[in-house]
Lab assay of single mutants.
Amino acid sequence: AEKTGIVNVSSSLNVREGASTSSKVIGSLSGNTKVTIVGEEGAFYKIEYKGSHSYVAKEYIKDIKDE
């Protein structure tokens, strides 16, 4: 089941290729951006990003809701 969340950062949140802080950064999301969460892996959520799937750190996503 998909969930949505809100990016909870003051500046921007790195979007990564994989579920690791050493993964390549492929983009960023600004605070209060709504994201669609399709899964989770460790400390990361797998999200829909620009037509494919990428990862963001869970600690920076708030207001998780089931869609």
Score class of each variant (00 low, 15 high):
residue 1 A to E: 09
residue 1 A to K: 14
residue 1 A to M: 14
residue 1 A to N: 13
residue 1 A to D: 09
residue 1 A to G: 13
residue 2 E to C: 15
residue 2 E to M: 15
residue 2 E to N: 15
residue 3 K to Y: 09
residue 3 K to D: 03
residue 3 K to W: 15
residue 3 K to N: 05
residue 3 K to F: 10
residue 4 T to L: 09
residue 4 T to Y: 13
residue 4 T to H: 11
residue 4 T to F: 13
residue 5 G to I: 05
residue 5 G to S: 03
residue 5 G to R: 04
residue 6 I to W: 12
residue 6 I to Q: 05
residue 6 I to M: 08
residue 6 I to T: 08
residue 6 I to S: 05
residue 6 I to K: 06
residue 6 I to R: 09
residue 6 I to C: 11
residue 7 V to C: 05
residue 7 V to G: 04
residue 7 V to Y: 02
residue 7 V to R: 02
residue 7 V to A: 05
residue 7 V to I: 08
residue 7 V to F: 03
residue 7 V to N: 02
residue 7 V to E: 01
residue 7 V to L: 05
residue 8 N to P: 04
residue 8 N to D: 10
residue 8 N to H: 11
residue 8 N to G: 08
residue 8 N to A: 14
residue 9 V to R: 08
residue 9 V to Q: 07
residue 9 V to H: 11
residue 9 V to T: 13
residue 10 S to N: 11
residue 10 S to E: 13
residue 10 S to Q: 12
residue 10 S to M: 11
residue 10 S to P: 11
residue 10 S to V: 13
residue 11 S to F: 08
residue 11 S to D: 14
residue 11 S to Y: 08
residue 12 S to F: 12
residue 12 S to G: 13
residue 12 S to R: 14
residue 12 S to D: 08
residue 13 L to G: 05
residue 13 L to E: 03
residue 13 L to P: 08
residue 13 L to K: 02
residue 13 L to A: 14
residue 14 N to F: 09
residue 14 N to A: 15
residue 14 N to S: 14
residue 15 V to C: 06
residue 15 V to A: 03
residue 15 V to Q: 03
residue 15 V to P: 01
residue 16 R to F: 15
residue 16 R to D: 01
residue 17 E to T: 07
residue 17 E to Q: 09
residue 17 E to A: 12
residue 17 E to I: 10
residue 18 G to S: 13
residue 18 G to R: 12
residue 18 G to K: 13
residue 19 A to D: 02
residue 19 A to G: 05
residue 19 A to I: 05
residue 19 A to W: 04
residue 19 A to F: 05
residue 19 A to K: 03
residue 20 S to T: 10
residue 20 S to N: 09
residue 20 S to K: 06
residue 21 T to P: 13
residue 21 T to K: 13
residue 21 T to N: 14
residue 21 T to Y: 14
residue 22 S to Y: 07
residue 22 S to Q: 11
residue 23 S to K: 03
residue 23 S to M: 04
residue 23 S to C: 07
residue 23 S to V: 02
residue 23 S to G: 05
residue 23 S to H: 07
residue 23 S to L: 02
residue 24 K to S: 07
residue 24 K to F: 05
residue 24 K to T: 07
residue 24 K to C: 07
residue 25 V to P: 03
residue 25 V to N: 03
residue 26 I to F: 02
residue 26 I to R: 04
residue 26 I to W: 02
residue 26 I to Y: 02
residue 26 I to K: 04
residue 27 G to R: 01
residue 27 G to F: 03
residue 27 G to A: 05
residue 27 G to P: 01
residue 28 S to H: 14
residue 28 S to E: 11
residue 28 S to G: 06
residue 28 S to C: 14
residue 28 S to Q: 14
residue 29 L to E: 01
residue 29 L to T: 02
residue 30 S to V: 11
residue 30 S to K: 14
residue 30 S to H: 10
residue 30 S to F: 10
residue 30 S to N: 11
residue 31 G to D: 11
residue 31 G to M: 12
residue 31 G to Y: 11
residue 31 G to C: 13
residue 31 G to S: 14
residue 31 G to V: 11
residue 31 G to E: 09
residue 32 N to D: 08
residue 32 N to S: 09
residue 32 N to Q: 10
residue 33 T to P: 02
residue 33 T to D: 09
residue 33 T to S: 10
residue 33 T to K: 06
residue 33 T to I: 08
residue 34 K to W: 09
residue 34 K to R: 13
residue 34 K to M: 12
residue 34 K to F: 09
residue 34 K to P: 07
residue 35 V to N: 00
residue 35 V to P: 01
residue 35 V to L: 05
residue 35 V to M: 02
residue 35 V to A: 01
residue 36 T to E: 04
residue 36 T to H: 11
residue 37 I to L: 04
residue 37 I to H: 00
residue 37 I to A: 00
residue 37 I to M: 02
residue 37 I to F: 00
residue 37 I to V: 05
residue 37 I to T: 00
residue 38 V to F: 06
residue 38 V to D: 01
residue 38 V to Y: 06
residue 38 V to A: 04
residue 38 V to G: 01
residue 38 V to I: 13
residue 39 G to N: 04
residue 39 G to V: 01
residue 39 G to M: 03
residue 39 G to A: 07
residue 39 G to L: 03
residue 39 G to W: 03
residue 40 E to W: 06
residue 40 E to H: 05
residue 40 E to S: 07
residue 40 E to K: 04
residue 41 E to Q: 08
residue 41 E to V: 11
residue 41 E to K: 07
residue 41 E to L: 08
residue 41 E to D: 09
residue 41 E to H: 08
residue 41 E to M: 08
residue 41 E to W: 07
residue 42 G to W: 03
residue 42 G to Y: 04
residue 42 G to D: 07
residue 42 G to P: 02
residue 42 G to V: 02
residue 43 A to T: 08
residue 43 A to R: 08
residue 43 A to F: 08
residue 43 A to I: 09
residue 43 A to N: 13
residue 44 F to P: 00
residue 44 F to K: 00
residue 44 F to T: 01
residue 44 F to A: 02
residue 44 F to W: 14
residue 44 F to D: 03
residue 44 F to R: 00
residue 44 F to N: 02
residue 44 F to S: 03
residue 45 Y to S: 01
residue 45 Y to G: 02
residue 45 Y to E: 01
residue 45 Y to P: 02
residue 45 Y to C: 04
residue 45 Y to W: 12
residue 46 K to A: 07
residue 46 K to N: 03
residue 46 K to G: 02
residue 46 K to R: 09
residue 46 K to D: 03
residue 46 K to I: 15
residue 47 I to N: 01
residue 47 I to K: 00
residue 47 I to M: 01
residue 47 I to G: 01
residue 47 I to E: 01
residue 47 I to C: 03
residue 47 I to H: 01
residue 48 E to F: 11
residue 48 E to Q: 10
residue 48 E to G: 03
residue 48 E to K: 13
residue 49 Y to R: 00
residue 49 Y to L: 03
residue 49 Y to A: 00
residue 49 Y to W: 11
residue 50 K to I: 06
residue 50 K to Y: 09
residue 50 K to Q: 13
residue 50 K to V: 05
residue 50 K to G: 10
residue 50 K to R: 10
residue 50 K to S: 07
residue 50 K to E: 12
residue 50 K to A: 10
residue 50 K to T: 04
residue 51 G to F: 05
residue 51 G to M: 05
residue 51 G to K: 05
residue 51 G to L: 04
residue 51 G to R: 04
residue 51 G to Q: 06
residue 52 S to K: 13
residue 52 S to Y: 10
residue 53 H to N: 06
residue 53 H to T: 10
residue 53 H to E: 07
residue 53 H to A: 06
residue 54 S to W: 09
residue 54 S to Q: 07
residue 55 Y to I: 01
residue 55 Y to S: 00
residue 55 Y to H: 01
residue 55 Y to C: 01
residue 56 V to I: 08
residue 56 V to Y: 00
residue 56 V to Q: 00
residue 56 V to F: 00
residue 56 V to P: 00
residue 56 V to R: 00
residue 56 V to W: 00
residue 56 V to D: 00
residue 57 A to H: 08
residue 57 A to E: 15
residue 57 A to F: 09
residue 57 A to M: 11
residue 57 A to Y: 10
residue 58 K to R: 07
residue 58 K to G: 02
residue 58 K to Q: 05
residue 59 E to H: 08
residue 59 E to D: 09
residue 59 E to C: 10
residue 59 E to W: 06
residue 59 E to L: 08
residue 59 E to M: 11
residue 59 E to V: 09
residue 59 E to T: 07
residue 60 Y to Q: 07
residue 60 Y to G: 12
residue 60 Y to F: 14
residue 60 Y to V: 04
residue 61 I to T: 01
residue 61 I to C: 03
residue 61 I to F: 05
residue 61 I to R: 00
residue 61 I to V: 08
residue 61 I to D: 00
residue 61 I to A: 01
residue 62 K to L: 11
residue 62 K to V: 14
residue 62 K to D: 14
residue 62 K to G: 11
residue 62 K to T: 14
residue 63 D to H: 10
residue 63 D to P: 12
residue 63 D to E: 14
residue 63 D to C: 14
residue 63 D to F: 15
residue 63 D to Q: 12
residue 64 I to D: 07
residue 64 I to P: 06
residue 64 I to N: 06
residue 65 K to S: 13
residue 65 K to W: 10
residue 66 D to N: 12
residue 66 D to F: 15
residue 67 E to M: 13
